Amino acid sequence: MGFKLLSKLLVYLTASIMAIASPLAFSVDSSGEYPTVSEIPVGEVRLYQIADGVWSHIATQSFDGAVYPSNGLIVRDGDELLLIDTAWGAKNTAALLAEIEKQIGLPVTRAVSTHFHDDRVGGVDVLRAAGVATYASPSTRRLAEVEGNEIPTHSLEGLSSSGDAVRFGPVELFYPGAAHSTDNLIVYVPSASVLYGGCAIYELSRTSAGNVADADLAEWPTSIERIQQHYPEAQFVIPGHGLPGGLDLLKHTTNVVKAHTNRSVVE
């Protein structure tokens, strides 16, 4: 069995187990497998329904001669939608809004960016022009300005110390501490036991640490421990890039980060 097929099978099995364990909360999309990078042309966006009122959005972007996937989250909030992270750029984010209108038909009224990198804030200006209120932590807003990236308009308070959590509509926002970046936030959907790890969490097929220019490698494993301790009931975990899975993604990420750190020390 090929690795790609095995990865998709694991996603399907995880979703099936969740649907059985929580039949009222989960209505997993039966329309197909989780979209992969090879299936999404740059400039297009796919939506994948995880649970009743919960979707991931998947886009792709060219970077350094390669094409990478990027995940975000959409959560229903009454007759409105909360968006977590842009679709990595203005063109993708405009396509995301169009796809949401086509498939869901509810307005996106608020959006949260989970850290300051372009795959999370690139497209904020498109959201703002569409009347979406954009939010991020003060740290993310400051770092985005320093980096020359787009800056969300509103500040999220109460997320300055490791372990801080605040309720934001249908989700809980959690600051686990520094990891992929010093400002990275985690998003949890309690009604569906869905954990969105953003770039602080890796997919299972990833074996290298990737972009760690703004990471705190020493603190990252401790931050992941905080996530595990705060959300032990999480059933569906979405990484910032690639295929979702279960809580095993947290341990896998820790292993990859520690291996990278150990290699760096040896070198």
Rank of each mutant, 00 (worst) to 15 (best):
A25D: 05
D214W: 10
D248I: 04
T60Y: 05
K4W: 06
R206D: 11
V256R: 05
S56G: 09
I104R: 00
D216K: 12
G169R: 04
L243M: 06
D29P: 07
S70L: 03
P239R: 00
T253Q: 01
G65R: 08
N262K: 06
G177R: 01
S16L: 10
G242Q: 02
T60A: 09
L243P: 04
T60V: 11
K8R: 09
S139N: 13
R206P: 04
G2W: 06
V75A: 09
E267C: 04
G169N: 04
L173S: 00
S161C: 12
P232K: 14
P138E: 14
L156R: 02
I40N: 10
A133Y: 15
Y48Q: 08
I238M: 12
Y231W: 12
S139C: 09
G242P: 03
V257M: 15
Q235C: 05
I74A: 13
A90D: 12
E172K: 04
H117E: 00
G89A: 03
Y231T: 01
L127N: 00
D79Y: 15
W55C: 00
V37T: 09
I104Q: 01
L47R: 01
V166F: 07
A179M: 05
R167Y: 06
I224T: 04
V171E: 02
L24I: 10
S205D: 10
K8D: 09
A192M: 10
A19C: 05
Y68W: 06
A129I: 06
E80L: 12
G148L: 07
A133T: 14
F26G: 08
N92P: 05
L9P: 07
H260K: 06
V28H: 05
L106N: 15
K258T: 08
S7D: 15
S30D: 08
K258G: 08
D125K: 14
Y188A: 04
V42Q: 13
G65H: 06
G197T: 04
E44T: 12
V132G: 01
T86Q: 02
P35V: 10
A19G: 10
V121Y: 02
F26Q: 09
S155V: 15
G158M: 07
C199M: 00
I151K: 15
I50K: 03
P176Q: 02
G72K: 01
P23K: 07
L97A: 01
D216M: 10
P239D: 00
N184G: 05
A133P: 13
I84Y: 00
A200F: 03
P239T: 04
V75P: 01
L9E: 08
S62K: 14
A192F: 05
D119S: 00
V146T: 14
Y196P: 01
F236W: 06
K4A: 05
A95V: 13
P244Q: 05
S208W: 07
I227N: 04
A209M: 07
I224G: 02
G32E: 09
D79T: 14
L159S: 02
V54I: 13
G242W: 03
T109S: 15
D216A: 11
H241C: 00
L217C: 05
C199A: 00
T140G: 03
S160V: 14
N71S: 08
G131Y: 05
A130N: 15
D52T: 07
R128D: 07
H241I: 00
E33M: 07
S155C: 15
A192W: 06
V171S: 03
I201C: 03
